[in-house]
Nucleic acid binder design. Structure first.
Lengths: 206, 206
DNA sequence: TGTACATCAGTGAACGCGCGTTCACTGATGTAC
DNA sequence: TGTACATCAGTGAACGCGCGTTCACTGATGTAC
């Protein structure tokens, strides 16, 4: 619990595993995916380059741990936005969506890595529960916005897919600064508020 | 115009620049982004590793050319799907969207690279017109599906953004096999047809 | 409470690898006369 | 039509770099007695 002095150098780090993951998150944010390596993470933590091997056998394993932590922080960001908003369902959907987009914008490389690594969901056991944690927020919010339609589990899934698709698309284009293309005339990026409430769902029928 | 024999080795390649770009596209498809290097492209073409320098000063420049060619092929794929479909507007929108998704699924790494490099739109002059070529398809299709609303240019832009956001989100999640998460119960990936027609747009007002 | 010893986590030198880059070269092509 | 020469495109050896990985080591910690 006690944090050792910042300048204190100890032979045993004490929390190297978690520190390497956080170093990885920082590197992704500051220097991008290409800069992510075992050696770079070790250097940022201030440990010799051989040290990570004790906790992560390969770079891929460290990446998986970083992505898992990314999903947890992603879910936390959405919940934080949601909890700070008014309690009506429309506002809560909007708030969690804003959290989704804000996270993507703040961590574009991590976001890209998170959503391109899940193919290996089976290989790294940490990954699945972490990504489910994020998906659970989306599921909750979908149920809140369309409770009747969601009584049918197939419709529930369809509703989730529609909501996710839209939010994910927006977050992606926003994080990658793609709207620059669409509105070079106005020079204004569309905001989620401009576009999201103008969308409506056809009620699903049995 | 005449294609030299396949096994004929010539000192001067004759079309090395374009050949390197196509080698890059193949490498992205077959081995992924991490495998893309000047040396790998040269090797695939069957040319010495120093040769690309005569056409592409750095890897970044070659990447930009690959991405530009990617956008051109992307636009062509959408148009091909569109032209093969019935001529009513709804079917044409659906068809071009299917082209969008199909391209992303067939070239996930290229697709990712295309939509994460555009930040450097200004640096590589080829990039902007190529990406606009793809965006033009989306614009046409938007006008066709909501001609009244699109008389107002602000609404036109909003409509484009909504359509793009949805299609791009779906293509992204599909290409990255993300729907595996959402419907582990059913084990079935949602299809564009299941989800896209269930979406409707609120008419925009002045 | 003290000593011996096993275990564990981090060190630092060394290795091979693929990469981008440089450079003197050479083969092929095109142009001037 | 033929010759000389400039230009251009591709070659292959060499360099330094950061990377992952190995390995004998050493400092710190925990446990047995």
């Amino acid at each position: 619990m006690e944090d050792p002095g910042l300048n204190e150098t100890k032979y045993h780090h004490g929390n190297l595993k978690q520190a390497l993951v956080e170093a990885g998150l920082d590197i992704l944010r500051e220097d991008g995916l290409a800069a992510l390596s075992l050696r770079a993470c070790a250097a940022r933590v201030g440990v010799s380059h051989g040290a990570p091997k004790n906790h992560f056998a390969t770079l891929a394993v460290l990446q998986a741990a970083i992505v898992a932590e990314g999903f947890r922080q992603f879910a936390a960001t959405m919940r934080r936005h949601m909890n700070a908003a008014a309690k009506d369902s429309k506002t809560q959907v909007m708030a969690s969506a804003r959290g989704y987009v804000a996270f993507a914008e703040a961590n574009p490389d991590l976001f890209r890595l998170m959503f391109s690594m899940e193919r290996q969901l089976d290989v790294y056991p940490d990954l699945m529960p972490a990504s489910r944690e994020a998906y659970a927020v989306l599921r909750e919010v979908t149920q809140r916005i369309a409770p009747d339609s969601c009584e049918n589990p197939v419709h529930q899934t369809t509703n989730e897919t529609m909501l996710w698709t839209f939010i994910h698309g927006f977050a992606n284009l926003k994080a990658n600064r793609q709207f620059y293309t669409s509105n070079a005339e106005t020079g204004k990026d569309p905001e989620l508020e401009d576009v999201f409430p103008k969308l409506s769902y056809v009620e699903l029928e049995d």
